[in-house]
Every structure is written in C-alpha cells, then in structure tokens.
C-alpha cells in the first residue's frame, strides 16, 4: 500500500492539536507546582505525536481507552479543554463532575472510554468495545493506548490472543516511553514488545513516536485494516517521557535518581512539537501563521483555566448518587 502524504491542512491540524496538548499540560505543570491541583498529575509532554497522529485517523464514533497519562488522548480525540481542566481542578463542571480527576478523564459521547488508573486496565475494555462493534455490525474501531509498562501485564497477552482469534476491529498502540513509573523499561522487560504481537500474527508496525506524520501514516493503514474486518493491528511508537512519572515526584524520590539529565536533554532535541514546526516552516508555512496558532491556543488554555477556577466545587454528596444507576449507594 502506498504511503499517504498528509496535505498542508492536515499537517497544520496535527501541529495545532499537539500544541494544544502541550500548552494545556504546561499550564497543568505550573498549577501542580503551585499546589492548585488536589491530586496526582501525570503529564504526556514529549509523547503528543502519538495520540495526535492516531486520533486524527479516527471517526467521532470510534472508541479509545487511555492510560493514567491520559490528557493527550482526551484532547486528541476531541475532548473539551474546559471540561478537562475543570475536572482536574475538581469542579462540578468537570467532564466527570469532579468524581474522576486527572487520571480518569472520559467523555463517552466522544468515544473516550476513559483514562485509567490501572496500568493495563484499558486492554480488555478496548477489546470488549471492539467485540461489541463486531457483534452489533457497526464499523467502529477501538483503540487501546498503553505504555511499555502495561505490556508486562498478563492481560496484554490475553487480549492479543482474543482479538487476533476473533478478528476484532482493534488497534493496539504501545507508547514506548522507556519507563515503568520510576524503573527503566530495559531493566524489567524481556525481548521486544512488538514481537509479542507478532507471535499472535498481528500486523505490527514500529514507528518513531516523536514524528507525528509517521504515526499518522501508520495509524491510517492500521485503522483502515481494522475497520475493514481484517482484525487487530499493533503499533509500537518509540518515544520518551520528558516529565517524571508524576509531577512533584522529587518528593517521593528523596534524592534518588532513575535517569540522567543528559538523556532527557538528548530527547528534548527530538521534541515532536518542534519537529512538526520545522516541517511546516520547511513546507513554506510563514512563522506568523504559526504564531497565530500559538496565540489561538493560548486563549483556549486561558479560557479553560478561567472556567475551571471560576466553577463551583464538586457536589460533595454526588458520590452517594452515582455508585449505581437509579439506586442509592
């Protein structure tokens, strides 16, 4: 199959979405440091190309499962920045009414079945969503985003087996960001994760996860295959977690170290947002146009923060109503 090249409009849209994720998270990083956010925040900075490239190939009705590092997937799939920000600020206007927080942003109306606090928690949910799509004879594709850490959970193997066996419309996207929380992946992972998918005869592509166009191209082929009923696909996208496992991790590390600064600096040279910016400039996009995009996104972020700050706190009794549908806790 010939590789599709993105149009100039598509290149710009990819850039704009990545920049939205980056700017939203830079603001979250600042607010986490300032102590404005009540819970843990796991940032996606450095990995934006993956969610952006994959979700740009999806339809609104397609379904995704995400990870504890889920802001990027939420925004890439079309989640509302204001509702996400308000959720992380624990406000009643949040997308989950303040009941989920950063690790659980979800918008079922947009096919975002949720970020997930359980590492590997999304595999079987996405597999089940793909099963439903097949049984209900619609053409929805399900995507499970997960990290190299999650690939060491046993349920990963179970879902590779079932999805391949039943030819489910599933795309598995491994964001290999090199770390399982505070442990380098190479210390705890045997072999190549992509080989695990290959063992189940699942078509597998390994891409540079910091190149949004490479991800977009790989996802385009994989989603097309899954949608046409040929079964699951696997993408392994190599990237790097620029931020810590979570913000304020220095408190936990207490002086301990699990990686070197020069390694982080080397990966900063491969920043996916800057690379896309360079690509656009090389393609003749004017710097003014890029600045206009940045300014526009700056306003979106400011509006989101303003909305969050000015919203009412969550309803403190809501949990009693929401344990069940139509039934008291």
């Amino acid at each position: 199959m010939p590789t599709t090249e993105p149009s100039r409009a598509e290149l710009l849209a990819l850039y704009e979405r990545m920049l939205l994720i980056r700017r939203m998270e830079e603001r979250l990083r600042a607010d986490a440091a300032a102590g404005n956010l009540p819970g843990a925040v796991h940032l996606y900075i450095g990995q934006e190309a993956i969610a952006t490239g994959v979700c740009a190939q999806l339809r609104a009705t397609d379904l995704i499962t995400s990870t504890h590092r889920g802001h990027g997937h939420f925004l890439a799939k079309g989640g509302d920045p204001k509702a996400m920000m308000a959720e992380i600020w624990a406000k009643r206007t949040g997308i989950c009414r303040g009941m989920g927080g950063s690790m659980h942003v979800a918008d079922f109306s947009k096919g975002i079945l949720g970020a997930n606090g359980i590492v590997g928690g999304g595999f079987a949910i996405a597999t089940g969503a793909a099963l439903a799509s097949k049984l209900l004879h619609d053409t929805r594709v399900a995507v499970a985003f997960f990290g190299d850490g999650a690939a060491n959970q046993g349920v990963f193997m179970e879902c590779l087996n079932v999805s391949s066996l039943w030819k489910l419309p599933l795309l598995l996207v491994c964001e290999h960001n090199q770390f399982s929380e505070f442990t380098p992946s190479q210390d705890i992972t045997s072999g190549d994760i992509a080989d695990r998918a290959r063992a189940f005869k699942i078509p597998t592509t390994v891409v540079d996860g910091n190149d949004v166009v490479a991800v977009w191209q790989a996802a385009g082929e994989a989603v097309g295959r899954a949608r046409s009923g040929e079964g699951p696909c696997f993408i392994q996208a190599h990237t790097y977690r620029i931020q810590g496992h979570l913000e304020a991790e220095d408190l936990f590390l207490a002086g301990g170290k699990y990686r070197e600064k020069h390694e982080i600096d080397a990966w900063r040279q491969r920043d996916p947002v800057e690379r896309q910016q360079q690509r656009l400039l090389a393609a003749g996009v004017r710097p003014d146009d890029l600045q206009a995009i940045d300014a526009r996104i700056g306003r979106v972020v400011e509006e989101a923060v303003k909305f969050a700050v000015e919203s009412e706190p969550a309803d403190s009794d809501l949990a009693l109503e929401l344990m069940f549908v139509g039934q008291k806790a």
């Binding site: 079945l113 079987a124 949910i125 597999t127 089940g128 439903a132 349920v155």
Partner: peptide, 14 residues
C-alpha cells in the same frame, strides 16, 4: 481478567 474487562468495554459500546 479479559472476560470481565471485555464486559466493561462491550457494555460501554452498547
């Protein structure tokens, strides 16, 4: 582990 997890996803998808 997958049977129970799939139930969640299949229910979410209708």
């Amino acid at each position: 582990a997958t049977l129970t997890g799939m139930a969640v996803g299949a229910a979410a998808a209708g």
